[in-house]
Nucleic acid binder design. Structure first.
Length: 139
RNA sequence: CCAGUCGGCCGGGCGGCCGCCUCGGGUGUCUCACUCGGGGAGGAAAGUCCGGGCUCCACGGAAAGACGGUGCCGGUCAACGACCGGCGAGGGCGACCUCAGGGAAAGUGCCACAGAGAAGAUACCGCUCUCCUGCGGACAUCGGGUUACCGAUGUCCGGUUUCGAUGCGGACAUCGGAGACAUCCGAUGUCCGGUCGCGAGACGGAGACCUCCUUCGGGAGGUUCCAGGAGGGUAAGGGUGAAAAGGUGGGGUAAGAGCCCACCGCGGACCCGGCAACGGGGACGGCACGGCAAACCCCACCGGGAGCAAGACCGAAUAGGGGCGGCGCGGGCUCGCGAGAGUCCAGGUCUUUUCCGGACCGGCCGCCCGGGUUGGUUGCGCGAGGCGUCCGGCAACGGGCGUCCCAGACGAAUGGCCGCCACGUGGGGGAAACCCCGCCAUACAGAACCCGGCUUACAGGCCGACUGGCACU
RNA sequence: UGGGGCGUCGCCAAGUGGUAAGGCAGCGGAUUUUGAUUCCGCCAUUCGCAGGUUCGAAUCCUGCCGCCCCAU
């Protein structure tokens, strides 16, 4: 899954649906462009621990998503995974199961649509608009 | 063997599957994908406490001043506040450890409390010399004096001492009474006390001693001691303090004192050793020169400022700036079919500043130029480089030779899962070798331009040198 | 990356060489029939930590720890 890298993109996804698990919090944003490739970003704040701990949390989450990227990703959705300290020690199989559940929950939530339109208005200069369809379209 | 000191090093290993970043080669449908090969976190990558490289800015050169830093001596280093060696001071039986360790006779300042005195010493108690005085007070009278006051006499009060009586207080004894006892009360006697009261006598520091006189009451003189006052001399002793202006002993003195002497301490011309810091000796001085500069400060030396988010290049769309050319000549209102006329209102730039006055511009189109946001490229890893070895040096380090190329991201790669082994630790089994099970088992911790140091964190382990003790030979 | 500030009782805080004010809270007592108010008393042992300078350190110096803020 492609990575989110810009601060503006993270702020946009933060307005989407949140679903919390023990080891992480998942934010999901439904995009107006249904065919857009699914993307994902990671946030691990300084509260979690020092640099080694933060790196490890992010890498475990990243690996779990990589292994199930076909099952988790659907076109037209952006995600941000906020790592928690529990992701350091949690059983890896359990981590994968939690991620799958959180992704399903995020997509099922209808509120993502409204958030998507407003964000699209706010970030209309983003390069996504160059290849995508015009905003404001409803399904 | 036990206890300890110092220095150096490591900080998991092998393998499987699926992945990530980057470099080079190849292929393709060539801002990407595939494939082959190489590389991919640390001793601290950390904290950001110093020093440099590099880049930009500033600057005619330098110096001074201000500000900041450093501070024994010598060396090493690109440089340093780092390191090495030495010296000094302190600590430890020792190996060894710790130290911002220049200047207090350049100046200013501080040293609370206590204490007499806290820094050009002081003088409270005390010690001591000389001189003077030798019950005190009040009142009255007289005399002297301008006054202040002084002297004499008297009275009163206080004072001192002796004696007496006795009250008082205490102890003891006897007797009587009360009470179950403990004990209490009263009387008498003896002894002691004298801070109180009474009476009488004496005194004039009421003290001691000596001599003389005597009417035996006392008087005169002297010595010594005592008390008070004035003027000196002291700094030994007391005590305070963190610190008291050399220490101890002796001589000396009125008492004392480096006043003198011996020893110790201190300063110290000069001599010797050392590149130096410093060390050894030391004529002589006779004791000044307390501590604090991590108080201000003085002296010596060093420092232009900022930082890779430095800096360089490219740069779409939109908006805006400048230049040139062409066309046009502001806006509102009223009248008019219209051309146009009337009226009102400006704004900017220049004219040195304000006012007045004057000139120009304002819109549209085209071309060009420069700045610049998101972004992209670069800076970006051959270096004060790593490893090995030899030589010089006590060492830090320097030199020669050989060999190697070894992370390069930018929401940030080096990961996930698993097996075996090593070591540690806990539990269980076994006589033992050993076996089984558990540990998020295995710390501290993640490059962000680079390098040299410092500091801090760290499970566990290895090696070497040395010290003290015990035992054995 | 660079710069600045703070840390003192449970809370808010004063004090910048001489042995740690004050307020709130808490505890005990008095006043009151009871409560509130008021009054009195108590309440700091490593002044974030560790070293050092000094006779003496919350204060001065050095090194750490934690928190906050600013610029880019």
């Amino acid at each position: 899954m492609k990575r989110l890298k810009k601060r503006a993109e993270f702020l946009a996804v933060a307005r989407g649906v949140r679903s919390a698990r023990r080891a992480f919090v998942l934010q999901t944003l439904r995009l107006p462009d249904e065919t857009a490739e699914p993307r994902c970003g990671f946030t691990v704040s300084k509260k979690v621990g020092n640099a080694v701990v933060r790196n490890r949390v992010r890498r475990r989450l990243k690996e779990a998503i990589r292994l199930d990227t076909a099952a988790l990703g659907r076109p037209g959705h952006d995600h941000v995974v906020i790592g928690r300290r529990e992701a350091l020690a949690q059983d890896f199989a359990r981590l994968r199961a939690d991620l799958a559940g959180a992704f399903r929950q995020g997509r099922a939530d209808r509120r993502g649509r409204d958030a998507g339109t407003t964000v699209a208005d706010a970030s209309q200069n983003s390069h996504r608009d160059h290849r995508g369809e015009p905003p404001g379209r409803t399904r």
